[in-house]
Design a protein around this nucleic acid. Structure first.
Lengths: 219, 219
DNA sequence: ATTTGTGTACGAAATGGTTCGCTCAATGAA
DNA sequence: TTCATTGAGCGAACCATTTCGTACACAAAT
């Protein structure tokens, strides 16, 4: 991305190749926003092209089709998540703190990346038609679950956690709580006065989610 | 279309008005399936018309526009939910059983009505653009929350439940767990061998969800 | 000279929406 | 009872626009 562009620029001058990479990146950025905003069928490639520094011609040149672009966007988004939770080694924390940390980080990530949430929502509406072709999801999920399993095991050993909590169920529960909070913003808050989108409400929710998970696992 | 008209004519009882109601209903049914399947922008009214016993002409005759039809579908879906949880009075059950019942019923409803879930997903992708115009959601949500509040209060009084669980947070937690299970089917199960859509996995999940909620509220 | 990147304009199909005119049942006056 | 009138219910062809995708000409770099 930007680094390699810089590198090229240092080497020579503003070259074609540099522009190309930049263009690709730019298109991907714009397309991500657009697909996250309107979904695959709702997004218009003419509109994407317009917001780009480039043109529709280039979209087809680089990505072949609307779906190709969509797939690239999806892949990029998933790659970004993977990079986030890849580094998190929580072996130094005690099980309880580690679990709370996992939940907190997950909650925050979802909140800070609604585009990702929306992309996933859309993918589910499409019945996961494209997600299968995105590599890396399997490993990512397995990694998270392995990590949870380890935390649970340590917790059981230390007497903090009870036995019988399935790591997959735990992962799903955490995901559900963090995801829903972002995904169903618009339909959920209807019906009570409390403003669910205020920072205050968000903090409260965050605490609740951590609390829910913790009390479920606690011995 | 022609056949039903014929039939009516033969037995002599069919009136125009009856046909009209049937047509309206039929269109709504088909449109519900289609919108739930592809979303607002993904659905094609020509296709809806084709699956109907009627025609595109009639869709515009009765509903005015694609969005009009969509709104009618949404409204109908929400009405259906409201009717389900309207009758449930759980005053006779002890708090713990009542809570478990609420969760179980909610879980089952979502599972048995994926169209509803998908409609809501779509509405969230549209940032709730139409849901505001659907009356009855406010009351419905408030009712559910009131019920939860009552159960919680009884539980605290009887010593089964701890204090400090916010009914709104509880409602959201239950919703999230039940909703996600259906909404994110396609992207979630990627990454581990266990088949998340088997009846076995479903039952296990159901149990987990009830368990999560219960251990959160329990004193 | 060949490969790679880019702008412009266009085409074909899809899509939301409309127009026109017909059918049929209900109504009420003769 | 009869029969013309009225208006809701309906079908099919049609229209204007949108939308994805492409052809072509051309530029820059190797």
């Amino acid at each position: 991305m930007a680094e390699s562009a810089l590198k090229k620029k240092e080497n020579g001058r503003g070259t074609r190749a540099t522009d190309a990479e930049e263009t690709r990146f730019n298109i991907l950025e714009v397309a991500t926003a657009e697909f996250a905003d309107k979904g695959l069928s709702g997004a218009r490639i003419d509109e994407i092209a317009e917001r780009t520094n480039s043109s529709k011609r280039m979209i087809y040149y680089y990505f072949g089709s609307k779906e190709g672009l969509y797939r690239a966007v999806l892949e990029r988004a998933y790659t970004a998540v993977r990079e986030v939770d890849a580094d998190n080694r929580r072996d130094d924390l005690d099980p309880d703190a580690a679990l709370r940390d996992v939940v907190g980080v997950t909650f925050d990530y979802h909140n800070q990346h609604p585009e990702f949430v929306r992309l996933v929502m859309n993918e589910n509406i499409l019945r996961g038609a494209h997600v299968g072709e995105v590599p890396g999801i399997r490993e990512r999920n397995r990694k998270v679950i392995d990590q949870l399993r380890a935390i649970l095991a340590r917790g059981v050993a230390s007497g903090h956690f009870r036995e019988g909590v399935d790591p997959v169920e735990l992962h799903m529960t955490i995901s559900a709580l963090c995801f829903y909070n972002v995904s169903n913003r618009y339909t959920f808050s209807f019906g009570f006065e409390r403003d669910m989108s205020s920072p205050k409400a968000l903090a409260r929710r965050r605490m609740s989610v951590i609390d829910v998970i913790e009390s479920w696992c606690r011995a």
